[in-house]
Design a protein around this nucleic acid. Structure first.
Length: 424
RNA sequence: GGAGAGGUGCUGGAGUGGUCGAACAGGGCUGCCUGCUAAGCAGUUAUACUGGCAAAACCGGUAUCGGGGGUUCGAAUCCCCCCCUCUCCGCCA
């Protein structure tokens, strides 16, 4: 959510930056509603002032034993008018908020301008694609033949876009979770948290998932609970409504959670395999930082996520998303894309974003600066990294001619020293 | 799920219809005092929106005592609904 006052005072800039994102946003409607709202507020405040004054007089007269029925009748009228003004105000507020809530964050000046992913900018690349002297299989064929992946049974249990891992497949998934958490806590200094896997609508509003993206979420019927689409939601909301001290910043958290996404609107996309699932595991990184530090923190957060891929020896590149390809709440996003031999291209495995104060304003997360002033802090997060996609990337990149898969060295201590996954 | 207790400012904690943005204490800040420390004395100490202003300072207004609604001329205080915390019972991994 943007600051209403900022929009009002920088309308041209806001218009320009939103144009870079593409899409239509109700800026003019917002301004009109805001002006109307203001005039109604002014009137209702004036009426309240009158009521307060008159009521005080009545109190005094009554204590002196005077009759006050005439004054009371008058105040009653005032109250009636206030009530109608308030109804008007509420309607305007709703209109104003629905505009405000539908406007995305403004892209940072350093974000490349463009309408779709073709305008994303490659920042750097690490490692090299493995070369095979045999036709490489994709992770589905590998996983099925190794007996570590069972999609038919998963479909029976739940449906399409679910998976069942078995034996070393399940073990490797668990190993990846532990490996990533260890790296982020021990090497990168993040505090590990294990949050609820469901969150209420207030929390989802705070991160910007609601109200606009309700269709992407699974909601638990007859409750206000949603399955979290990412750990970003519960972890960012840890400090919802709080005021932190400047000295405690930055605060850095890492969390493992499963993630649940309806994937509405992605019918026919990535239907094969584990790339796009209704449920997947992820280790997330979340930071609460001072505004002046947030872009440096985005760089280091991205490096922290990259470190995982480097330790696993997976070839990847870092993309700066362009204005048209960024998520709703983000001011700047780097995607990490890992090499997938079966597709002969890079696929997203992590997304690292600086939200500036966009989420902090929605979730009301502030900090007290050294001069005692309260202001919104900046939030960031990034996948550190997606477990499911790492799992399949390892299968594809480390496959052998005989269909077995070499376990990356960094992962072996987490798999009882196992060096190779063979047919089970 | 049943019964009960409670949710007030940075903290503790008063306050059962008007003079309450809220006693009192603690903490914080400013000044005085002081060889140093401790103590003492005086003052000060919320947030949001909004009017005056180009802006800040400042002055004024409105709102805020878990959230929402109601009663009333007037609500922290009365009534209703909801949320959260605690205790006991039931159920349960």
């Amino acid at each position: 959510m943007l600051d209403k006052t900022f929009i009002r005072e920088n309308l041209d800039l806001v218009r320009k930056k939103l144009a870079a994102r593409g899409g239509m946003y109700p800026l003019d409607e917002l301004m009109v509603a805001d002006a109307e709202w203001k005039s109604v507020v002014l009137r209702s405040e004036e009426m309240r002032r009158q009521r307060n004054e008159a009521s005080e007089v009545i109190g005094k007269l009554k204590r002196a034993g005077n009759d006050t029925s005439a004054q009371q009748a008058k105040v009653k009228e005032i109250s009636a008018e206030i009530k109608s003004l308030e109804e008007n105000m509420k309607a305007l507020e709703e209109r104003l908020n629905s505009c405000l809530y539908s406007i995305p964050n403004l892209p940072d000046d350093s974000v490349p301008v463009g309408t779709d992913e073709s305008a994303n900018l490659e920042m750097r690349r690490w490692g090299r694609a493995p070369e095979f002297d045999f036709p490489p299989l994709d992770h589905v064929d590998l996983g099925l033949s190794l007996g570590i992946l069972d999609l038919d049974r998963a479909a029976k249990i739940a449906g399409a876009r679910f998976s069942l891992l078995r034996n070393d497949g399940a073990l490797m998934e668990r190993a990846l979770i532990n490996f990533m958490l260890d790296v982020h806590t021990k090497k990168h200094g993040y505090q590990e948290v294990l949050p609820p896997f469901m969150a209420n609508s207030t929390s989802l509003f705070g991160t910007g998932n609601l109200p606009k993206f309700a269709q992407d979420l699974f909601k638990v019927e007859a409750t206000d609970y949603y399955l979290i689409p990412t750990a970003e939601v519960p972890v960012t909301n840890i400090y919802q409504g709080e005021i932190l001290e400047q000295a405690e910043l930055p605060k850095k958290f890492t969390a493992y959670t499963p993630c649940f996404r309806s994937e509405a609107g992605s019918y026919g996309k990535d239907v094969r395999g584990l790339i796009r699932q209704h449920q997947f595991n992820k280790v997330e990184l979340v930071k609460f930082v001072e505004p002046s530090a947030s872009y440096d923190e985005l760089e280091s957060l991205t490096r922290d996520a990259e470190d995982i891929l480097q330790q696993l020896g997976l070839h990847y590149r870092v993309m700066a998303l362009c204005t048209g390809d960024m998520g709703f709440s983000s001011a700047k996003t780097y995607d990490l894309e890992v090499w997938l031999p079966s597709q002969n291209r890079f696929r997203e495995i992590s997304s690292c974003s600086n939200f500036e104060a966009f989420q902090a304003r929605r979730a009301n997360i502030r900090f007290r600066s050294e001069d005692g002033k309260r202001q919104y802090l900046h939030t960031l997060n990034g996948s550190g990294v997606a477990i499911g996609r790492t799992w399949l990337a390892i299968l594809e990149n480390y496959q052998q001619r005989d269909g077995s898969v070499v376990v990356p060295e960094a992962l072996r201590p987490y798999m009882g020293g196992r060096e190779l996954i063979k047919k089970q």
